[in-house]
């Protein structure tokens, strides 16, 4: 247990947990439902700022601030989703990107958010048990969603929206709900982040942050929960070991996106069914007899 109580390791683990929460949110939007969002950091910033203001200015207890931040982010997710989710893929990407930029400009210009200086000091409230419990809850919720009627509907939307609609799925409503849940996770992550770092500033939530979270989802495998967790862990730990190449980090991220898309569009763990894998290793399940048609490469 010494390892866990080491201050440095504890910080890294909390960081990983926060990123897992946010990346799982984006995974639901982009990986499962197939709607590319380039503004995830905006929802993170909305959560971070709301919760910080609630606990700093109003002195509300941490739990209320946390919930307030997450729900506000979800609310903005719905607000953004209503007009934009009718748009097709790349238009949506640009709309979310535009939204993120507008949020950042507003946060930089408002007085209550401290402008370009940001907010500090935010009370230090985020503890490791709290983060771990949140991660477990979110992972559990995501796994439940994936296996539910709702999750299957989202997958259908990703695979073929028109076909899904023909099958009687109310695609618009499902997309909104997915967007709201994903934004909720981003807001929760942002709130935890703010009460962990104790200082926030609009520059922290720029386009690069959105790309960083997207990379976690893409690296591990879009639509795969274990994949997203793996991606978050790898991309949060890697900079710690690669401090001497810090300046090359974004270069690596850029190249990573291109290479992953060309050679492994489903990510490292995309298309791998974990329950099946575990069952197979212990010989509890026979191999599928029919090959070919069930395996499809590429994200649709």
């Amino acid at each position: 247990m010494d390892f866990l109580f080491n201050d440095y390791n504890a910080r890294i683990i909390i960081n990983i947990g926060i990123y897992i929460i946010m990346a799982l949110g984006l995974n639901l939007i982009t990986g499962v439902t197939g709607q590319l969002s380039l503004g995830h950091a905006a929802f993170m910033s909305i959560g971070a700022y709301t919760s910080s203001l609630l606990s700093m200015k109003l002195g509300l207890p941490f739990g209320v601030a946390l919930l307030g931040g997450s729900l506000t982010a979800a609310f903005f997710g719905v607000l953004l989703g209503f007009p934009t989710l009718r748009l097709t893929g790349d238009y949506l990407a640009m709309a979310t990107l535009g939204f993120a930029e507008i949020v950042r400009v507003i946060l930089t210009n408002l007085e209550v958010t401290g402008g370009a200086l940001g907010l500090s000091p935010i009370p230090y409230k985020t503890t490791m048990p709290l983060v771990l419990i949140s991660v477990i809850l979110i992972v559990f919720a995501m796994a439940r969603i994936e296996r539910s009627r709702f999750g299957r509907a989202l997958l259908a939307i990703r695979e073929d929206e028109i076909a899904a609609e023909t099958m009687g799925i109310n695609t618009f409503r499902y997309k909104i709900v997915a967007f709201a849940l994903g934004s909720f996770c981003a807001g929760l992550g942002g709130s935890l982040y703010a009460h962990f770092i104790t200082y926030i500033n609009p520059v922290d939530f720029g386009f690069n942050k959105s790309i960083e979270i997207l990379n976690m989802v893409v690296l591990g495998g879009m639509g795969s929960i274990p994949g997203t967790i793996l991606g978050s862990v790898v991309l949060t730990i890697a900079p710690e070991f690669l401090r001497f190449v810090e300046q090359y980090r974004m270069l690596f991220y850029g190249a990573l996106l291109v290479i992953m898309m060309i050679f492994r569009p489903n990510g490292l763990l995309g298309g791998v069914n974990f329950t099946d894998l575990v069952l197979k290793t212990f010989g509890l399940k026979k191999k599928k007899k029919v090959n070919g048609s069930s395996e499809k490469e590429g994200v649709k």
């Binding site: 893929g89 997207l214 850029g254 190249a255 990573l256 996106l257 291109v258 898309m261 569009p265 590429g298």
Partner: peptide, 9 residues
Amino acid sequence: LSALISAIG
């Protein structure tokens, strides 16, 4: 989606 992500990269 893949092409767009590659372009961002």
